[in-house]
């Protein structure tokens, strides 16, 4: 048996091989291109990929859309910021502890809202997001209110802190790659299969002795924790958090990422994040223009390629290649 057929037989091996290749390429970038401003952008891409991959897991496997990922990003960011700044826990530990908080909140909210579907679920999670934003703004004793929190410790442990972009680059990208691998494995495992089945018919899945409701809550928690990790990494990288971190606009931006990369593709989420980061960086001087471009693009993509821009383009390329009958 050759290595290739061995890899093909096992989804985990295939995922690992792909992600390893991807990570190697990413890690070689600074070696080839040297240190520059682009590193900063690349770090943001690594961070923003996490909530995007989280939402992609949820929408890709369960077919549902939540508008709560901005909120969980903010909870992850604030929780880790508060734990490390106010209590003095080291950032690595606070990042992990923050995820326990995210998971608990997600479990509580998930148990409540996941009985809803479609746009009812979207509206319920939107309401939750608004509550989180309000609490962050108003509970100023804990969160710093509208001013937010400053001087959040840099990522690091045992007296060694990341101080430069290149260090963050080499810490954050492996984390993102590992979580990507986690998401890919989950998606191709029996859990992913069960979730895909649940979205077609919960009663049938139940009749097979599978607790559909537990799976739905499980994927919601995992998906929210992805956003929470992103938030914590963000807080320790930029060193401050403000209520804008968890705003509805940010939640909409994450949806926009999926509209670009496809609602059911983890790799597509990465592509979407790259596109939106470039858009943010170069095309948009003013917040108003950003809103216009974001809004118009969202409309155009949904109308022309309802499954997302990237899958739509891929389908288009295929049908051109094989002719109209394909």
């Amino acid at each position: 048996m050759s290595i290739l057929t061995f890899i093909k037989q096992d989804a985990v091996h295939l995922n690992t091989a792909r992600v390893a290749l991807f990570l190697t390429a990413i890690l070689l970038v600074p070696v080839v291109f040297g240190i520059g401003y682009y590193l900063n952008m690349m770090i943001f891409i690594a961070i923003l990929s996490l909530p995007a991959m989280g939402l992609s897991l949820l929408s890709g496997l369960s077919g549902q859309l939540a508008i709560s990922h901005g909120a969980f990003f903010a909870i992850g960011a604030y929780a880790s910021a508060i734990l490390s700044t106010n209590i003095g826990i080291n950032p690595v530990l606070s990042t992990l502890l923050a995820q326990m908080i995210v998971a608990l909140v997600a479990a509580a909210i998930g148990a409540v809202v996941l009985r809803l579907r479609s746009h009812y679920l979207a509206i319920a999670t939107l309401s939750f997001a608004i509550i989180v934003e309000l609490v962050i703004k108003e509970w100023s004793g804990l969160t710093g209110g509208m001013q937010g929190m400053l001087n959040i410790p840099a990522m690091g442990a045992l007296g060694r802190e990341a101080t430069s972009d290149i260090q963050y680059y080499y810490i954050y990208w492996p984390i993102t790659a590992l979580l990507l691998l986690f998401a890919l494995n989950l998606s191709s495992s029996r859990i992913g299969r069960a979730l895909r089945a649940i979205r077609e018919g919960e009663p049938i899945v139940d009749s097979l002795g599978i607790q559909a409701a537990e799976y739905k809550i499980g994927i919601y928690i995992i998906s929210s924790v992805f956003a929470g990790v992103g938030g914590a990494l963000y807080a320790h990288f930029v060193g401050f958090v403000t209520p804008a971190t968890g705003s509805i606009m940010f939640a909409i931006e994450i949806i926009m990422v999926l509209a670009l990369g496809g609602f059911d593709r983890l790799w597509g989420a990465l592509v979407g994040v790259v596109l939106i980061t470039l858009l943010n960086e170069y095309a948009l001087g003013f917040a108003d223009y950003k809103k216009i471009i974001l809004g118009v693009t969202l409309i155009a993509v949904m109308l022309v390629f309802p499954r997302g821009l990237l899958p739509g383009l891929i389908d288009l390329a295929r049908s051109n290649k094989y002719g109209r009958t394909a």
Binding site: N185, S189, R190, A194, A197, L208, G218, I222
Partner: peptide, 24 residues
């Protein structure tokens, strides 16, 4: 058909995401 036998196995979200040997 694999979903039929699904309930006999326990590999949870974490084990499956980590791709642990027993889930495979």
């Amino acid at each position: 058909a694999m979903l039929g036998g699904h309930r006999f196995h326990k590999g949870g979200f974490l084990a499956c995401g980590l791709g642990l040997r027993h889930t495979r």
